[in-house]
Nucleic acid binder design. Structure first.
Length: 611
DNA sequence: GCCGTTTTCGGCCCGACTGTTTTCAGTCG
């Protein structure tokens, strides 16, 4: 069992304990343990077998949790969870995912109405039974009804990162088979959609020719994590993983790999249009090849490039294949030069141990330097987010000093090292980075001081202007806006945009908000106001957070907004998430020029300060 | 249930907001 699965079991146990009104501190222990397990880079199931004592070295794992993990490894579950599931139903865990539903409501509905799942809840709402309950009225019922509809819209879909992790594991497994040398995810994962319905993987190699592929198909069907095998054909295996994710693996001959990749990448509308264009040119396109209509003669098939080229088009990046003008652009050779991860010079939204992050300022800066960034901004939470130990004005000012000190320290050490080993140091400055070889005060990395403030009910930011004036970056995020009306929320944000120190408008976050396009504010109005005020819009790369979808990003660009793409890292490892954000920007046709943190540090600062 | 210690037990992230309330419980981040 991998760390993520162990973490899920622990988190579920915490949820059940909460419904059972268990000791809140014990519940928190389970949650902390779940987080610790999930963020651990060591596979714990392996550790549990080889050296169980090492489990205790992980913060948040004590004697009890170590025993729990061993038990999970042995039995696949833990006794406390099973015990609770006798009294409560597993479907109640799903009820908890609805916005506005917490453990107390789940317990109440169960005890009074015997409601255990979403269908029963819906029926109870329809029958008006909810309003008979204490603390529940028409408004609460309406809110839950909406929540159910919203939840249903994307149940059965998986976040991009979960699908990608599964894809990487299966890819590694397939590549171990002799004669398979290429595996590529297709479908919505390749197109960079933020959620995927199922996973399509295409594999090829010498062994994948029609008469030889049998053993490889058997090998795939024997993949250990398969929960249930759905189908096994001549060159295709379909199965479901324990997470519920359905996977289709196709093993294809090398000559038609490009055609298959093109076909299975989609989207459907893109493919329909491509095939129409092929027909007009006297070709027919299938998942096997591009061929002449008249005699079926093979034209192209091994690579996507040759297929698109035969149709007079440039190769189209998968993220653009939505039949939104990309085919016309490809024919006229005017596809945009999409932004890539290599264009990003800095990540300007991240947290440290001062609030709810896991690493120090220094550790974040070192990690960013190792990633090749030229600058970062430390943007811890402000006081309104009390749960995170958010900074008040006094602490925020102290924090700025600490951030500046880290920048100076790293620079000093950098010069010392430079003096000792002037050549070949990994810390040698890049050409084009801020500063020049003649400048004695060149910095290895710029560490900007920032803050993530909250927008209050009256539209004010929750720190004083005098404090904000000291910051390089001020990001405003709306954390408490979900139950407001769209009009009220929009008005709040518009008022916040008037604050001259605000540089970047962030995103509402929330575990229970799955869809990126459910942004609960009136976007066109916000984008226009932001563009007029010179405030950049943030795109958050965290694949589990609600954020701007590609359509929103396009709209923002059209309104004249600049975009900043950040990871909102709470741990050094989360800087890795930048790739998910970049995918989303690419889907919105954004180029390097649209995104502010592709600029060198000085130009970036100049631009955000110009208000 | 974890942690740190005062090696045996007490402390453990807290404030805003909402709805249905006349004083607060529940949810959220």
């Amino acid at each position: 069992m991998d760390n993520r699965q162990i973490a899920n079991l622990l988190a579920e146990t915490a949820d059940l304990l909460e419904i059972a009104a268990g000791d809140p501190f014990r519940i928190r222990s389970y949650r902390r343990a779940a987080e610790a397990v999930e963020s651990s880079t060591i596979p714990l199931s392996q550790l549990a077998v080889e050296d169980p004592k090492k489990l205790l070295t992980i913060a948040g794992i004590g004697k009890g949790m170590a025993a729990n993990i061993l038990e999970i490894e042995k039995a696949g579950t833990l006794p406390l969870r099973e015990e609770l599931l006798v009294k409560y139903k597993p479907s109640m865990l799903e009820l908890l995912k609805l916005p506005g539903m917490g453990p107390k409501s789940v317990a109440l509905f169960w005890e009074v109405l015997q409601v255990a799942d979403i269908d029963q809840l819906e029926a109870a709402i329809a029958a008006g039974k909810l309003e008979e309950l204490p603390r529940f009225g028409a408004k609460a019922a309406e809110k839950l009804k909406k929540g159910i509809a919203e939840y249903r819209k994307n149940s059965g879909r998986f976040h991009l990162d979960d699908a990608e992790i599964a894809a990487e594991k299966i890819t590694a497994y397939l590549l171990e088979f002799p004669g398979i040398d290429r595996v590529t995810p297709a479908g919505s994962l390749r197109r960079g959609r933020d959620t995927v319905g199922d996973l399509d993987l295409l594999a090829t190699g010498p062994i994948c020719e029609e008469d030889k592929v049998g053993p490889a198909v058997d090998y795939m069907a024997a993949y250990p994590p398969i929960a249930s095998l759905i189908a096994k054909g001549a060159n295709k295996v379909s199965f479901r993983l324990r997470s519920g994710l359905q996977v289709d693996v196709r093993l294809l001959p090398q000559g038609s790999y490009g055609a298959a990749l093109q076909y299975f990448t989609g989207s459907k509308m893109h493919n329909v249009t491509v095939r129409q264009r092929a027909l007009k040119r006297g070709y027919t396109l299938s998942e096997y090849a591009l061929a002449k209509v008249e005699d079926g003669a093979f034209v192209a098939g091994a690579t996507e490039e040759e297929i698109y080229a035969a149709l007079g088009m440039d190769w189209i990046a998968p993220e653009l294949r939505e039949n939104n003008g990309e085919l016309e652009a490809a024919l006229e050779h005017r596809l945009p030069q999409l932004i890539t991860q290599a264009d990003i010079r800095g990540d300007v939204h991240m947290h440290t141990v001062a609030t709810d992050g896991s690493n120090t300022i220094r550790e974040m800066a070192e990690a960013a330097l190792a990633r090749g960034y030229e600058y970062i901004a430390i943007t811890d939470h402000s006081k309104n987010l009390a749960m995170t130990n958010g900074l008040d004005d006094q602490r925020a000012l102290t924090h700025i000093a600490a951030i500046r000190q880290v920048e100076r320290d790293m620079a000093e050490e950098f010069y010392e090292r430079e003096k000792r080993e002037p050549e070949g140091s990994p810390l040698k400055p890049r050409p084009g980075s801020s500063g020049t070889a003649t400048s004695p005060r060149q910095l290895p990395i710029r560490v900007l001081a920032g803050i993530e403030v909250d927008i209050l009910a009256d539209g004010q930011l929750d720190l004083a202007d005098e404090t904000l004036a000291q910051m390089d970056i001020v990001i405003a995020s709306v954390h408490t806006l979900f139950s407001q009306s769209i009009e009220e929320m929009t008005a709040r944000v518009l008022r916040a945009l008037e604050n001259p120190y605000l540089k970047i408008l962030g995103h509402p976050t929330g575990r229970k908000l799955l869809r990126r396009d459910a942004y609960q504010i009136h976007l066109p109005q916000i984008f226009q106001a932001a563009a007029a005020a010179g405030v950049a819009m943030e795109h958050n790369s965290n694949p589990n957070r609600l954020d701007l979808c590609d359509r929103d990003l396009k709209m923002a660009k059209e309104a004249g907004c600049k975009i900043v793409v950040n990871t909102d890292a709470h741990h050094t490892s989360e800087m890795e998430n930048m790739r998910y954000g970049i995918r989303q920007l690419r889907r919105a046709w954004l180029t390097k020029e649209d995104v502010l943190n592709t600029l060198p540090a000085d130009e970036f600062l100049e631009t955000v300060k110009r208000r």
